[in-house]
Design a protein around this nucleic acid. Sequence first.
DNA 1: GATGAATGAGGATTCATTCAT
DNA 2: AATGAATGAATCCTCATTCAT
Lengths: 224, 224, 224, 224
Amino acid sequence: MHMPPPARAHQARATRDLILDAAERRFAERGFTGVSMRELAADAGLRNQASLYNHFRNKRALYEAVLTRGIDPIIAVINASGSARRTEHGSGPDAFLEVVIEYLIGHPHLPRLIQRASLDDSRHLRQVLSRLLRPLYAQGIKVLADTSDHWEPADMPHLAFGLYQLIFGYFASAPLLATVSENDPLSAEALDRQSRFIKEAVARLLEDRSRSPRVAPRPGRRTR
Amino acid sequence: MHMPPPARAHQARATRDLILDAAERRFAERGFTGVSMRELAADAGLRNQASLYNHFRNKRALYEAVLTRGIDPIIAVINASGSARRTEHGSGPDAFLEVVIEYLIGHPHLPRLIQRASLDDSRHLRQVLSRLLRPLYAQGIKVLADTSDHWEPADMPHLAFGLYQLIFGYFASAPLLATVSENDPLSAEALDRQSRFIKEAVARLLEDRSRSPRVAPRPGRRTR
Amino acid sequence: MHMPPPARAHQARATRDLILDAAERRFAERGFTGVSMRELAADAGLRNQASLYNHFRNKRALYEAVLTRGIDPIIAVINASGSARRTEHGSGPDAFLEVVIEYLIGHPHLPRLIQRASLDDSRHLRQVLSRLLRPLYAQGIKVLADTSDHWEPADMPHLAFGLYQLIFGYFASAPLLATVSENDPLSAEALDRQSRFIKEAVARLLEDRSRSPRVAPRPGRRTR
Amino acid sequence: MHMPPPARAHQARATRDLILDAAERRFAERGFTGVSMRELAADAGLRNQASLYNHFRNKRALYEAVLTRGIDPIIAVINASGSARRTEHGSGPDAFLEVVIEYLIGHPHLPRLIQRASLDDSRHLRQVLSRLLRPLYAQGIKVLADTSDHWEPADMPHLAFGLYQLIFGYFASAPLLATVSENDPLSAEALDRQSRFIKEAVARLLEDRSRSPRVAPRPGRRTR
DNA sequence: GATGAATGAGGATTCATTCAT
DNA sequence: AATGAATGAATCCTCATTCAT
């Protein structure tokens, strides 16, 4: 995994991975249509675009490989956190959030990559993506079941998707956020604050507020 | 949309709007690099791409015109809701959310357009976009100031951006959501439920809970 | 049709025709897959391949246009000769052959173009080509009806196709013929001889030899 | 085709033949430029184009090997028929035609392969091809010398080439013929009829008719 | 002898843009 | 204001070929 000297390094770390790395970065930055095979070849240290096609059938196949490779660890992290939740910390969604956010901090362009894909139309892509969302969705339900039955079952997709937007959106649109606020949203301090914010926010979204009945949430219902 | 007085510059204005309409739809669907001038010309009923250049200097100018035309009404809506907040309903952020969500429902591809732009790199674009986010951000602060002083000032960007993701993300990624859940996220029923979900979620995020301790406070977590 | 001075000649003779001319020559020489759009653009005096696409949707459409433009006059010649046959010369297939051969001599790469197309597989092409063969076929039958009923109806496709091969094959494979024999098959003398040869050959193929019954043409039937 | 003694160089020879088989089929179908090495490798059961180069220096060498392998047996058949002519059947060109046509029926894409090559420009190819045509040409002369002295020596190339077109053209353009007529030109019945048609046609072309005047001799036509 | 990979050149086609009409 | 045409540059992808294994 670590680069052997300079020359002849092609053997050690597979070219395929170099391509995937380059593609992950570029696709996250500029999206599928915004990236050219020429550019990817150059980024991967290949002298020629033709070489790409020894590893991926075409651009779309490469894109899907990038997505899969990017998403699978997240799913794993989510699932692992899900099963370990009770035993390790014994409490709530914080452990889950901690590990997910930690992973995203370590791979800061993944959320952008995924957001971009979410906006695309390809049927193919959506299959890949729904593999990501389903565990997140399942996790949301599990966590919720532990704490409250405030939300109705029909609210679940909305809740799960809201969590997804809350967690992934920050990283995905970090460059925009940098423009709006003056601070760098990926600075250590901002990341720490975002981590705490998310946990608090999720706690508030999931907590049982049985004291305030919310059966028929029409106008006037809220008890501020 | 606004007919000019002479009523005979009609055609010109009409063509320009046809182009903007087509471009808004297409750019929302496939992003800046995913849409070709040829396609936009055809969509606008023009027989030739060259005609586009009678109305917009180049593709990027057209894109920015689309964004501006799409975002400005949202900003107006937000601002109007902000100033009218107390008088009309008297009930905090609900009126604000109501009107924003209502507007997004009426223009379902605007959020996609905006999300796509958020992910882009162009300095120019971000200026346009931050014009959208700033009022939303300001609004978040105002609302909050009325109800609670739970969040610190430094939390504000995180909170405002979270609200943005929560509200816009649902519409932006509706196609993906349709794949994950089985229901159509743009059906009347789903939209109504999302509207209620958002209001409840925002209420929870904004409420002052200094008096009511979180259910299971854990080591290392702030109780601020 | 004749080149006006040098510059600005693009207007006078349509670019489209220049392209078709270049394409006809090249496709005849090297076939569909052997010719590149780049080359055709250069031959047609265009600085860029892109210009070709202002006139033809794609390479195949260009190829079909070339074929149609090449074949239609031949069909016209055949048909005209067919209807004029009785009145002008009052006799046999010679007038017909004369005019067809004369046309082919004037357009020596047409037969190559057509032969190449005949060998191709595209369904599209075959439709174009059968438009050429049908009149030739019909003509063969008409001529025959005047002179003999020696051949059975079921022989007709074989006869018509044989005539086609005999007439077109010489021109189509002229380069090969040049290698085999030492003489230039497109020299005036060779062309004259071929013209006479074809007439004699067709006469022999069509003539009524009622004296030699040929009902059951099994071994031993011929009366040499 | 010929198994080498050691019977274990087996594999090598087999692969080479598999390649030649695939190439013969493909080159006949789509010509030299229409076929890719990738495709040939796949057809021959090889996983990689590189393997082809263990057997043939390059694409052109492979093409020439295919042509040679295809043409040599035809030449042999023609030569054999030529020397055996008198003894076996004693009846002029029929035996010759019979055996040639029979061979072509057994190898139906050879004529297409050869026709395609005839249309090509390469000097190299024409050398290979003229090896095929020369015996056919010689044979035509021999046969003719036995039966008639109607044709002048200078007519010979035209006659020989005409015979070639007549015989090979039918098979070469069979797909086209199938479109024009409704029947399958390679059905047993059609092949039988073509065989008889060719024999009759050749008989008519070769026969000495100096004694029997043409039906309607017209001005300007030789009665030589 | 077979293969995975690399590569320079070139394939058809589309891109955004310009210019004359 | 609309269009047909031209164009330089770029698009994705395939070509035949080579080299190391």
